[in-house]
Design a protein around this nucleic acid. Structure first.
Length: 422
RNA sequence: GGAGAGGUGGCUGAGUGGUUGAAAGCGCUCCCCUGCUAAGGGAGUAUGUGGUAAUCCUGCAUCGAGGGUUCGAAUCCCUCCCUCUCCGCCA
C-alpha cells in the first residue's frame, strides 16, 4: 500500500510515477472520496464525543440517585444519529481502503521506461555460454532420455503442467534444494525457516497477491475455507512478522525457505508448454529480508548477489536485468531478474527475481520498527535463490554431452553420491 | 471429531454494565540518593487515526475477530478464530 500522506502531498508526482507503469490513478475519485471521508470522520467523532459525555453524565446522576430520564432521552436520540453516521463512514472508509489496495507500488528512479521484457535493462552478463559441436537437445528430451521425467504419468495423476521426477532427476531435484539451502545458511547467514504451504487471504493481501491477482492463485475449493496454496514462500515468510514491531538491533532479519510453489498459470495457455519451465507446481528456495528503510537499497544488492552466487557456483551462464516499468511486479519498486542461459531456446530465461518492496508490503502487513521512539514501517525484500525446476532445466541443457548424457556440476556431486554423470 | 476451560498492555495478572485505555506486580527508560556495588526513592513506559508543522496538547477507536442488546460493554447475547486439558482418530 502506498503512503496516504504522500498521496495527499505529492499527488501529481505520484500520478506521474504510477502512469509509468501504465496505471491510471483516478484522481477525481480519490480527491472526492477522501474529502468525503474526512468530513464524515470528523462529524462521527464529534457525535461520539457528545455521546460519551452524555453516557458519563447518566452514570454520575444514577450514582447520586438523581433523575436522569431527561439526559437519557437526549442520549437515545444522539445514539441513533451516531449509528447512521457510522454506517455511512464505514462505507466510505471501506471504499477508500479497496481503492488504496488496488494501487501498485511506486517505482524507483532507476526503473527504465518500457512496455515489455524486451525493454528491460541488461546490467551484466556473467559466465560463458557453452559451445556445442553437436546437435543439442532441450531439457525435456534429455529428461525423457534418462527416464527421469514423466509428463504422461503426471497428467494421469493430476493434470497437464505437472511432472513426475524419477531416479537421478528426483535426486538432482533434492540435491539442488539442499545445496542452495546449505550455501544460504552457511555462507550467507540466512536463518532457515519452514512454513505452512496453505495460507489465508489476509496473508496474500499482505504481500500484494490479493485482491488483484486472485485468478493466479490456487484456492482451496471449500466455500467455508478462506485458504489458498502458496504461489511462493514469500507469502508465508513475509507474513511471519505481520502485525509486529521489530527490534532495531535484530535487523536485518534474513530468512531462507524452501517450499513447493503453486500457480494456476491462468492466461498462459500456449506459453512454455514444453518441459518444466512453466508448471503448476515447482520447488523454490526463497530469500526474504526485513531491513530498516535506509538500508534496503544496499540489501537488494546483497540479496541479489546471494542468488547470483548460486548460479556462479553451478557455472551456469546468466545475465542480470532491471525490469522495466511495465514488466515490474505490482508490489515492487525495483526488481533485478537473473536470467539463465537456455541453449535449446537460444535465450536467457528468468530463474530468479529479486525485489525491493520498500514499505509497500510492510504497510499492508503493519510490520514496523521502533526507531528513535517512533514506529516506522520496515522495508521488505525477497528473491529466488533459486527456482529449482528452472535450475534443473538449465543444468540439463548446459551440461549435456553428445551422447545424451549430462555431466553433474562439481558442487552438486557431494549431494548426489558423488555421481558424475546422469 | 466429542467434553470442558480460557483468550486483557513487553510479561504475570485483577477487573461480570458507568471517568477502566484499563489496578497491582515484574521488566524497561530517565532522574535522585550512595565513594563503588547492592538496596532505596521519584517520574515515565501500548497501538492506530483525526485536529496540527510537531515525538507538547487534545478528540476518537482498539481488552482474539465480527455482529447484537444498551444512554453506556473488557464485562451481557450470537457467530467465527485461536490456545490449553481430557477422550477419540491419525502421519
Amino acid at each position: 500500500m502506498i503512503d496516504i500522506q504522500k498521496l495527499k502531498k505529492n499527488l501529481s508526482e505520484t500520478i506521474d510515477n504510477l502512469s509509468r507503469r501504465g496505471f491510471e490513478l483516478d484522481k477525481d475519485y480519490w480527491l472526492k472520496t477522501e474529502e468525503k471521508r474526512k468530513k464524515l470522520q470528523i462529524e462521527t467523532e464529534q457525535l461520539q464525543e457528545t455521546q460519551n459525555n452524555l453516557a458519563r453524565e447518566i452514570g454520575k446522576l444514577q450514582k447520586n440517585k438523581k433523575d436522569f430520564s431527561k439526559v437519557k432521552k437526549e442520549a437515545s436520540k444522539s445514539s441513533a444519529d451516531l449509528k447512521i453516521k457510522k454506517i455511512e463512514l464505514d462505507k466510505v472508509q471501506g471504499e477508500l481502503y479497496d481503492f488504496l489496495l488496488s494501487i501498485p507500488n511506486l517505482i524507483d528512479a532507476r526503473v527504465p521506461d518500457g512496455n515489455s521484457e524486451a525493454d528491460n535493462t541488461v546490467v551484466e552478463e556473467i559466465g560463458k555460454k557453452p559451445k556445442f559441436n553437436f546437435e543439442i537437445k532441450d531439457h525435456q528430451e534429455l529428461g525423457l532420455l534418462s527416464d527421469g521425467m514423466d509428463f504422461e504419468a503426471a497428467s494421469k495423476i493430476s493434470k497437464s503442467r505437472f511432472v513426475v521426477f524419477k531416479d537421478s532427476l528426483a535426486l538432482l531435484n533434492r540435491a539442488l534444494i539442499n545445496f542452495m539451502l546449505d550455501i544460504h545458511t552457511k555462507k550467507h547467514s540466512y536463518k532457515e525457516i519452514y512454513v505452512p504451504l496453505i495460507v489465508n487471504s489476509e496473508s496474500l493481501t499482505g504481500t500484494g497477491q490479493l485482491p488483484k491477482f486472485k485468478e493466479d492463485q490456487f484456492k482451496i475449493d471449500d466455500s467455508e475455507q478462506d485458504l489458498y496454496l502458496i504461489p511462493t514462500a514469500e507469502v508465508p515468510v513475509t507474513n511471519y512478522h505481520r502485525n509486529e514491531i521489530l527490534e532495531l538491533e535484530d535487523l536485518p532479519l534474513s530468512y531462507v525457505c524452501h517450499t513447493p510453489c503453486f500457480r494456476s498459470e491462468a492466461g498462459s495457455y500456449g506459453l512454455d508448454t514444453k518441459g518444466i519451465i512453466r508448471q503448476h507446481q515447482f520447488e523454490k528456495v526463497e530469500l526474504v529480508s526485513f531491513v530498516e528503510p535506509d538500508k534496503s537499497d544496499e540489501q537488494l544488492e546483497i540479496l541479489t548477489s546471494h542468488a547470483e552466487n548460486i548460479l556462479k557456483q553451478l557455472n551456469l551462464p546468466f545475465r542480470k536485468v532491471i525490469l522495466c516499468s511495465k514488466d515490474i511486479g505490482f508490489s515492487s519498486s525495483l526488481t533485478y531478474d537473473l536470467e539463465v542461459w537456455l541453449p535449446s531456446q537460444d535465450k536467457f530465461r528468468e530463474i530468479s527475481s529479486c525485489s525491493n518492496f520498500k514499505d509497500f508490503q510492510s504497510r499492508r502487513m503493519k510490520i514496523r520498527i521502533k526507531k528513535d521512539k517512533k514506529n516506522i514501517f520496515c522495508h521488505t525484500l525477497n528473491g529466488s535463490g533459486l527456482a529449482i525446476g528452472r535450475t534443473m532445466a538449465a543444468i540439463l541443457e548446459n551440461y549435456q554431452n553428445e551422447d545424451g548424457t549430462v555431466s553433474i556440476p562439481e558442487v552438486l556431486r557431494p549431494y548426489m553420491n558423488n555421481l558424475e554423470i546422469l
